[in-house]
Structures are given as structure tokens and as C-alpha cells.
Design a protein around this nucleic acid. Structure first.
Length: 263
DNA sequence: ATGGTAGCGCTGCTA
């Protein structure tokens, strides 16, 4: 099974590129983030034409997550398993069972600035995610949590850690919240494949030519449960898709990540 | 040079 994740930064703006990418990358399951779309506008028919069933959770202007699957979608659930005020969940998580794997597409809040109200919300959201996982499944089951975590797990996951003093995405509380997910029983699949390779990123700021300078961060992750870790065969961040694939329209600021599992 | 770009949508917010 090839499972992928991509923050598309507006599905409406990226639909053509996404269709093209589906045709050559051939994922079995794809988690999308930042669709910036309402459920009513979600182009399910376009995906069905390519052989994908889909589910979407979005309100329109901000956030929005989706799952596409050509190995079935069952028991789709928008939001966390227990009700929370809308301001906390914000259309940032969608979970479904695809080909026997419980898949979550997550868009973790950005956090804006360390110590801000939004930063505290980010930490609370990650804690909530862990609570949700332990309430609804176990690491002995096939689970994959995929998406834009807005956290770089280690210093080597950013282009120059000295440029990030006091910044979000690298702060210790954020990393600790991510480690709590791993302590529950999730493994960073990309690092299983590239344990010793630095300089591999999934996001680059649109500004200042950051992509071409190699000024990026690895914040898009596929976390697999212990039950699946042994099945990880290959992983890749598709930097070509970040280049724009020859189109005039700008690409997303994120590259897609896919992981191949022997299941 | 305290900058820069993109999306949404029409004003300024979010990233």
C-alpha cells in the first residue's frame, strides 16, 4: 500500500496539479490538508473519475482535510471522537479506515508565535490528538496518522537551526507533544527509511526564494503504528511537485510525502 | 532591505 500526504494550500487552486500527481504517483490512500473548501464544493466526482473514493471535512475559507482512497473508505469520522467546541477542532482532522488501516488526515494548528494563544491551542490540539488515539485504537492495530504537523521533530529537520531561535515548529513543548504521540506507539516512517540523511524537507516558504536556496523544514509526517512499522519499505518527499510541474500557477508551499508499506 | 509570496476575496487575515 502506498499512503501519501499533501498540504495542497487550497484544493480549488491545486485540483489540476493534484489530478496529475495522482496519475503518476499512484497512491492507494492520500491525505490532504488545507483544502480551504466547504464540503459542498469538494470535487468528489473528479476523484471518482480517477478511481478514488473520498471523504472531506471543511467549512470553507480555512483549514479543511480530506482522505482519498482506492482501497475503500469505511467509518469516516470528521473531527475528534468526542465533541469539542468548533474553535478547538477547526476542521483539522478526518479519520477513516482504508484497506484495513485506520488513517487520520491531520492539520495541526500553526501556533503563530511561541507563548501566543494560538501556540497554547496548538499544544492542546496535539495533546487532544494523543488522547483521541488512545481512546479509539491501539498501537497494535494498523494505524497511520498523516499530515502537516507544523512541528519539525529534530534540529536536522530544519535548514539552519540557528535561524529558529525562539520560533515555533522547533520549540521543546511542541516536540515533546510530538514525542508523546510516538511514546503512545507511533513511528516516523520517513526516518525509518532515511535514518541518517539530513537536509530533507517538505515545506519551503514562498518568499525570498527559499525553495531554491534549500531553506526548508520537514513538518509533514506519516506516523505509523508499531504494528505497521515493520512493513515500511520505502518513502519519498516528491520535491518535483513543489517545483510546479511546469505549470504557470504556483505550486503548494508543501511537497507531497508518500510511504510504501508491504501490506 | 526588519523585507519577501500565496490564497481567499475584497479587507485584512492566515500561513
Amino acid at each position: 500500500m502506498r499512503i501519501a500526504t499533501w498540504n495542497v494550500n487550497s484544493l480549488k487552486a491545486r485540483l489540476g496539479k493534484l489530478e496529475e500527481w495522482l496519475c503518476y504517483a499512484q497512491p492507494d490512500v492520500l491525505c490532504l490538508q488545507e483544502t480551504k473548501m466547504s464540503d459542498a464544493a469538494f470535487p468528489a466526482l473528479a476523484f471518482a473519475a480517477l478511481g478514488y473514493e473520498s471523504a472531506h471535512h471543511g467549512n470553507g475559507r480555512w483549514n479543511g482535510v480530506a482522505i482519498l482512497s482506492r482501497v475503500g473508505i469505511e467509518k469516516a469520522r470528521a473531527g475528534f471522537s468526542t465533541e469539542l467546541p468548533e474553535a478547538i477542532e477547526e476542521c483539522r482532522i478526518l479519520t477513516a479506515t482504508c484497506g484495513g488501516v485506520r488513517v487520520a488526515s491531520v492539520y495541526v494548528p500553526n501556533g503563530r508565535a511561541v507563548g501566543s494563544e494560538q501556540y497554547e491551542l496548538k499544544l492542546a490540539w496535539l495533546k487532544r490528538l494523543r488522547g483521541d488515539l488512545s481512546a479509539s485504537t491501539t498501537p497494535d492495530q494498523a494505524v497511520a496518522v498523516c499530515g502537516d504537523f507544523n512541528v519539525a521533530p529534530e534540529d536536522r529537520d530544519v535548514w539552519d537551526i540557528s535561524q529558529f531561535a525562539g520560533a515555533t515548529h522547533v520549540s521543546e513543548p511542541e516536540r515533546a507533544a510530538l514525542r508523546e504521540l510516538e511514546d503512545w506507539g507511533l513511528v516516523d516512517a520517513f526516518r525509518l527509511v532515511y535514518p541518517g540523511v539530513d537536509g530533507l524537507y517538505s515545506w519551503w516558504d514562498y518568499r525570498a526564494g527559499d525553495f531554491h536556496k534549500g531553506h526548508g523544514m520537514r513538518i509533514d509526517l506519516v506516523l505509523v503504528s508499531r504494528a505497521l512499522a515493520g512493513a515500511v519499505r520505502y518513502a519519498l518527499i516528491d520535491r518535483e511537485a513543489r517545483k510546479g510541474m511546469g505549470s504557470e500557477k504556483p505550486p503548494s508551499d508543501h511537497a507531497p510525502l508518500f510511504v510504501d508499506l508491504d501490506i
